[in-house]
Design a protein around this nucleic acid. Structure first.
Lengths: 154, 154
DNA sequence: AGATAATTAGATAAAGATATCCAATTTAGG
DNA sequence: CCTAAATTGGATATCTTTATCTAATTATCT
């Protein structure tokens, strides 16, 4: 349903959302360890999210990535759309002239379903994906390892 | 949202459904021309649908493929499931022990959306994808070229 | 039985998604 | 101003999906 790359992007964004309350920015390394995503690949994904205006990046010592807006205002739709957009069917995949004005029933239905999928993504904000229990985000972290509290990592 | 292969499978099934009323079976060649799918590749797709019990095949002279059941009883879900199943999320993609019993909010939500997608496929039968107007299927075809009336081809 | 038409199966090629690695650039701090 | 830390970008490798081609098998009709 969603590509591996989009899954990585969502993990990273949820993690950054969970960090946005206390810590400032996170390095690619930290995000990679917290979300179990290959660091080299994650780097590309974060760059794409940055270009899309969802993140802000800071180079140099003490730099890293952080959310550009509040988690309540960022939707799954925006993230997915930046990485691997939902393919709507606006013109006939067979390239038929006759179907340019109106798609055949099959493609009309498939596009309806794609629209429904888009809608589901649009309705979901990052804030909704943080663990409901607020204490989870305020309690101290015993380990020195990078954590992903939103994903509930040990 | 759906793979190219699944799209091909759906086209072929809709075409066969539209043919199921008058003509009997259709050869791979005929289906390929009607649906604009590469014939060599379509062959593999039809084999898969056949193994899945959605089609019946007949070898030899006068053979070909035809639907195994009535179009009203075959759903898009069955077809998609045979070719490129919707990936539900039952276990944590990160392989975390702690998430085996309960997924984190992100993956819970993604699975909910996958379930909604499955449901949309389940609700759609092949019969619904035939052109609503019954006259389309009873009128004579002027050309000698293979036709795809369900897809509204010229 | 033989010829023809059709599916089946295997090997292989091309394209796109996923992943890795390394050099270049930027920035903060001593 | 120099060093360490961090992002950025380019080149490249691997895997999966998509697609092609060819030989083998099966079935029908004359």
């Amino acid at each position: 349903m969603i590509s591996q790359t989009a899954e990585y992007a969502l993990r990273a964004m949820v993690h950054l959302a969970s960090c946005s309350l206390d810590t400032g920015s996170q390095t690619t390394q930290q995000i990679a360890e917290a979300t179990h995503v290959p660091v080299g690949y994650l780097s590309k994904v974060l760059q794409a999210l940055n270009r899309g205006g969802l993140l802000t990046s800071q180079r140099g010592l003490g730099g890293g990535f952080s959310l550009n807006r509040a988690p309540e205002t960022i939707t799954v739709y925006e993230i997915v759309q930046e990485i691997a957009p939902v393919q709507r069917i606006h013109t006939c995949p067979l390239g038929l002239e006759a179907h340019q004005t109106q798609l055949c029933p099959l493609h009309r239905k498939l596009d309806q379903i794609a629209a429904q999928l888009e809608e589901a993504y649009r309705e979901t904000t990052l804030a909704m994906l943080l663990d409901g229990n607020p204490t989870v985000f305020s309690q101290a972290i015993p380990s020195s390892e990078p954590q992903c509290r939103a994903l509930g990592l040990p």
